[in-house]
Design a protein around this nucleic acid. Sequence first.
DNA 1: GCAAATATGATAGTAATACTATTATATTTG
DNA 2: CAAATATAATAGTATTACTATCATATTTGC
Lengths: 223, 223
Amino acid sequence: MINLLSNLKIAVPENIFIKDPESSDLGKRIVEHGILLIDEIGFDSFTFKKLGARIESNESSIYRYFESKHKFLVYLTSWYWAWIEYQLVFSTQNITDEEEKLKKAIEIVARIVKQDSAFSHINEVALNRIIINVSSKSYLTTDVDAENKEGHFKIYKRLVSRISQMIQTINPKYKYPSSLASTITQGALHQHFLKNHFKSITDCNDAVSPSEFFVQLTLSTIK
Amino acid sequence: MINLLSNLKIAVPENIFIKDPESSDLGKRIVEHGILLIDEIGFDSFTFKKLGARIESNESSIYRYFESKHKFLVYLTSWYWAWIEYQLVFSTQNITDEEEKLKKAIEIVARIVKQDSAFSHINEVALNRIIINVSSKSYLTTDVDAENKEGHFKIYKRLVSRISQMIQTINPKYKYPSSLASTITQGALHQHFLKNHFKSITDCNDAVSPSEFFVQLTLSTIK
DNA sequence: GCAAATATGATAGTAATACTATTATATTTG
DNA sequence: CAAATATAATAGTATTACTATCATATTTGC
């Protein structure tokens, strides 16, 4: 995976950024340290000014890449889901047993990223933590509908649709493939959050993974 | 339900507010119009200054009830979940069939509030929309752990635990009662959100309710 | 019925935020 | 080497999320 990915560029919708951060050294540093800084201090405390100071650049320069702090988060979540989607497609394409395929897909969206695959300037472990903690803030806004029209969430929706397709293939009569797929994708993040902060309302811990829970849930439901 | 509730006070942990808003006319107006204003302009645009203007009171007076905008949201979510918990306990207590009981409980946490039960100054329909759109912002903060220790989320956790208990009663061998209960509670809100904004990744609509989806999911999973 | 306590209102002030605008200085490219 | 482009520096703005202070109502206890 490491070598393969090193020659790939994860494709994020172009209208999310003003200037593609992958196109320059500064852009990459913005993304690299943006992730680390959000992971350290949280998205609410994160500002372009602080990021500028950290990378010894200027707030105004960052604004030439991202029109707002919010769009930066949308960029990061899109990048993350595109990366997960890549792994999902790559890891499931050679599996012929449809059930095994779905199991693998669930495992990929529900697992925590254990180590940096080091193919780029992006620390996926830190990014994964950010997604668990704040990804829902990228769509919980008054402008969701406008942003959705702009295609800001299309990668996420495509990923959920892929899982929905797998479910339909296994059982074409099952009535709720999309709801189940979106419940898995979003629920897995939630279980990770609960495991870290509200242990009493989850069974997930070091021994029981969200993947395990959702695999059992999914298979028993659609059969 | 209407008459019963009119004599009841929904109990919210005391340390969430500075002064109990139920204890005065101004306090009730803060809550009443706070809900309406957040519903209208969204939580991010909502400020105590705007609320003060709306109720012809003063920003500084509102700060005497709630120490911050964030705590106000925590108050509203606690009130909401306490209200849901009340309905759940009330509606299920006379059901002897454990499976029917669980079905009823799921229906209550997953349904949308259809009309104001009019027992107080609180518009539950608007509050329900707020919960769907922003409730996760109440815990997705850097201070979750500190706030959790203070008991800010105990009502929500107690509600999830009740559902978890019902699941355990039906099948004591099922391994993930708490994860399932938290997935239902949080997933139902998410399905409502998707239905309103990302229709392509949900099967829920006017004909198919989140309740229906989660009842089928739950019963097939735990049996 | 009045003083004391309490609740509310009005005003001002503050540091930080999330930007925009402008101008200057590097760096790259044709 | 000039022109184009990228980055940096500085300043400025409206708003936010408060805190602090003082004044004025309103309620309550005696």
